[in-house]
Amino acid sequence: MRPKGGATVQHWLYASNCAVAPAWAGPTVEALVAHAALRNAECGLSGALLFTGQHFIQALEGPATALAQMRSTICDDVRHTHIMTLAEGTLPHRRFDGWALAYAGASVYLADQVRTAMADGAPALLSLLQAFARPLPGANPGCGQHRAT
């Protein structure tokens, strides 16, 4: 859980198509998120997952070996197809505090935004994921906001 990166943090950003029937997608994602919350903390991975009903977008970052292992596990997962790497490499520091489900839902607007962001490339998607992963304003005192919760 501790995002203590040292000098080398590897990262991977990908998009994929959900292969699970719509009726099962909700419970599937729920189970997946619960599982990932435990596993990612164990192996020092942080990041975020976004699910629009059709697409998964996931950012993962952490130690090189842990990330490589998780990456091959995820790539073998039959619950999604057409895994497309959008960005990968070394980062000076982590971009996510921990592991988070950014969004899971069927917002028509967000699905459109994701499609546009996929065409615009990794930076647009990363900022979308980061915006979701950020703590709610007001939930955290001491970030310059004097709004009591």
């Binding site: 969004y103 839902g105 967000l110 709610l136």
Partner: peptide
């Protein structure tokens, strides 16, 4: 958009 969805909105226009 993110704030609206996280607050519980189901969609955006």
């Amino acid at each position: 958009v993110v704030q609206a969805l996280r607050a519980g909105a189901v969609d955006f226009l």
